[in-house]
Amino acid sequence: MQKISMTINRIASYISATIMFILTIWTVLDVAGRYLLNKPVRGTYEITELALVLIVFFGLGYAQHRDDHVVIDLLYTKFPKKLRFIVYEFGIILSIVISILMTWRLYLYGIRMQSGNYVTSVLSIPLYPVVIFAVIGSICFLLSLISSLFTFNKSEGEDE
């Protein structure tokens, strides 16, 4: 389980990083085009926005695997190990619940975007496929959370 999730999410994070790199270059070219040729790339603003959706959602799962969350450790570290285990699992389960709700609702939102024919205003790119990518990223995130159910020992700094 953990291996599969790790592999999938590592690939997702590479996609995320690649899009980020392309976005950097794209933006620089846009700026250069604007000043050197007075020809900015059409629709850069909305391309940036859509790219960010992919960067964010494909980055979530790997960040979860690397335990990047902002958490407040203060009380937790003082708990006995058993309580820490319970609290840890509770946190993961709550995160799973939220991410299931988020995935489901993103999907419904995507359907709304499709039936409402929402598009970007310059390039008229339909929004719903981008939402579907977000749903896929959200599923990857969910996967990483489920696999985190079994990594309490690792979070304690112990090998499994």
């Binding site: 940036t48 926005e49 790219a51 959706v53 988020m102 419904l108």
Partner: peptide, 20 residues
């Protein structure tokens, strides 16, 4: 419904693109 909309709208944010 807000969760679905907010998850997408906040990711699709030109402002946030500064952070990476």
């Amino acid at each position: 419904a807000k969760l679905g909309a907010d998850a997408f709208v906040n990711a699709k944010s030109y402002t946030l693109s500064v952070i990476p």
